[in-house]
């Protein structure tokens, strides 16, 4: 309610009673907002989600602008200054086992790590989302076929499956990306299918069918809007999983290869120095933790902001 003006309400007292005969009351007007306006308002009023979004934006901005930040070359080795501790002059975050500047490598590493987090989820979302939507809306044998195929993938733990696929395809960023995408298609398909099936059986979809509307119009107007929210929330969680898996692949040598800067790979190469310079060795892991944590918390915030079934 927004006060739009005032109105007078007469009171049942005579003018001679010495009491006020009328009071002024503010009159409100109802502010109409669309569903997504409401979601946006709720998200921006949730301090945790806003903080996480800011942290992520800072990491992403630094990663994007890395070449223009005046940082030392991330692959420039200096064997005389190996494993300088955090806080050394000229190297705020120290150097790694080959004397490369840690700050530069962390920021440059963010480019690969974030890309490995987001790109596979986006591709898997398009493929798995369409498959799940078709399976859920068409139902019957089509559903059976699509869902049983995804079940096959479910037989393997996701990290093992990614390792197996990346291992079979060979090391390299492209192959790791492909492997993670393949791993994510089945769960996205399954979530989309279950939400779509649920929405499809609701009366408003029946009513839309009864109006003689075509399948595409029904999906666009009535199904997508109700399915996208939960899928979007789920995809945000998957980004954090994707960052962890890609770091894991790089860690065992199936993702990015030296001397490229990537958080998982850095964690691997710094592993042997964990007793000499523990802080330096932990830094890439800390970045992975912060990033995936932020995506997780944002996902939680979105979920509660979208939940308006009163």
């Amino acid at each position: 309610m927004k006060p739009a003006g005032t109105d007078k309400i007469m009171l049942p007292f005579g003018a001679d009673s010495g009491r006020p005969t009328a009071v002024e009351v503010p009159v409100g007007s109802v502010v109409q907002r669309t569903y997504w306006e409401n979601v946006w308002r709720r998200v921006t009023r949730d301090p945790f989600t806003v903080a996480c979004a800011l942290v992520l934006m800072a990491i992403a901005a630094a990663a994007l602008l890395a070449p223009w930040l005046g940082l030392p070359e991330p692959t420039l080795t200096d064997s005389a200054r190996r494993l300088l501790p955090v806080g050394s002059p000229g190297h705020i975050l120290g150097t790694d086992e080959l004397g490369r500047d840690m700050l530069s490598r962390i920021i440059h590493g963010g480019r690969l790590s974030l890309m490995m987090g987001i790109v596979p989820v986006l591709i898997a979302l398009m493929i798995g989302g369409s498959a799940g939507l078709i399976a859920g809306f068409v139902g019957g044998r089509v559903n059976m076929l699509i869902m049983r195929v995804t079940d096959v993938f479910y037989a393997f733990p996701s990290i093992l499956l990614a390792v197996a696929i990346a291992g079979a395809l060979g090391a390299g960023i492209g192959n790791a990306l492909l492997a993670i995408t393949i791993v994510f298609i089945p769960p996205i398909t399954r979530v989309t299918e279950s939400v779509t099936t649920q929405v499809r059986s609701m009366d408003f979809v029946e009513a839309a069918r009864a109006s003689g509307a075509g399948t595409l119009a029904i999906i666009r107007t009535h199904v997508l809007g109700n399915v996208l929210g939960p899928i979007f929330v789920y995809a945000t969680v998957l980004i954090s999983v994707s960052i962890v898996i890609s770091a894991g692949l790089s860690f065992i040598g199936l993702g990015a290869s030296p001397p490229a800067a990537e958080w998982g790979l850095m964690l691997n190469t710094l592993r042997e120095s964990i007793f000499l310079a523990p802080l330096n060795a932990i830094l890439p892991g800390f970045m992975i933790f912060i990033t995936s944590m932020c995506f997780n918390l944002i996902s939680d915030g979105l979920r509660s902001a979208m939940d308006v079934r009163l």
């Binding site: 408003f204 029946e206 009864a210 009535h222 809007g225």
Partner: peptide
């Protein structure tokens, strides 16, 4: 047709 469940027969997002 008009359905029994007045809430379920309206799209909550529209």
């Amino acid at each position: 047709m008009v359905f029994q469940d007045s809430y379920a027969s309206l799209n909550p997002r529209l």
